[in-house]
Amino acid sequence: MIAILLVALNLRAAIASVPPLTDVIAADLGLSAPAVGLLTTLPVLCMGAFAPVGPLATQRFRLDRMVAVSVAFILAGTAMRIVENVHVLYASTLFAGVGIAVAGVLLPPIVRARFPSRVGPVTGAYTSVLIGGALLGASLTGPLHSGLGLSWGASLAVWCVPAVLGLTAWLLRAPPAPPTNATRTRWPWRDRRAWAATLFMGTQSLLFYTELAWLAPRYTAIGYGTATAGLLLGLFSLTQVFSAFAVPWMAHRLGRTGPLVALCLVPTTPVLLGLAYAPRSLAWVFVAVLGFGAGGLLALALTIVSGLGRDPGYTAAVSGMAFFVGYLISATGPVLGGVLRAATGGYEAVFASLAALSVVVLGLGLLAGRPERGHPSRP
Rank of each mutant, 00 (worst) to 15 (best):
G333H: 00
L273N: 15
T303E: 08
T269Y: 02
G320Q: 00
S330K: 03
Y347H: 06
A316I: 03
V325Y: 05
L282Y: 06
F323N: 02
F323H: 02
G338I: 07
E348N: 01
I304N: 06
G363P: 09
L362K: 08
G295V: 11
L265F: 11
V261M: 14
A301S: 15
A299D: 10
L364N: 01
G258V: 10
G307W: 10
G365F: 00
G345V: 15
V359Q: 03
G307Y: 12
L300K: 12
S358H: 09
L300C: 10
V266G: 05
A349T: 15
V361K: 00
L290V: 14
P259Q: 03
L263G: 15
G309S: 14
L265N: 09
P312S: 09
V285H: 14
R310I: 00
L302S: 01
W249I: 14
Y314Q: 00
L297F: 06
A317Y: 00
L357H: 03
L367I: 03
L367V: 06
F351G: 09
T332E: 01
G313N: 12
G320L: 00
G293C: 13
L297G: 07
Y277Q: 14
F351T: 08
F351H: 05
A283Q: 04
E348P: 05
F324L: 08
R256I: 02
S281R: 14
F323S: 04
A288G: 12
V261L: 11
V359G: 03
G363T: 14
G258A: 08
P267F: 10
V285W: 15
Y314R: 03
G309W: 06
G274H: 08
P267Q: 04
S306E: 10
Y314F: 07
H252K: 01
V271S: 04
A331L: 08
F286P: 05
A278G: 13
A294H: 12
A342C: 05
T269F: 07
L290N: 11
L336G: 06
Y327M: 08
G363I: 13
L260W: 06
A283H: 13
A251V: 02
T344P: 06
L366S: 08
G307R: 13
G291D: 04
A368T: 00
L367P: 05
F323Q: 04
M321R: 10
T269G: 03
A342P: 05
R310G: 05
A262N: 02
T344F: 10
V335P: 04
Y314E: 05
A356P: 07
G255K: 04
A342R: 07
S358D: 07
G296T: 15
A283W: 09
I304E: 12
T344D: 07
P259A: 11
A317I: 00
L254M: 13
V285R: 13
L273G: 05
A276G: 07
P334L: 02
A352V: 11
W284Q: 13
P267L: 04
G274Q: 04
R253W: 06
L282R: 02
A316W: 00
Y327V: 07
L272C: 05
T268W: 13
V339F: 15
D311Y: 13
R370V: 10
A331K: 03
F324G: 11
R310C: 02
R370P: 10
G337E: 03
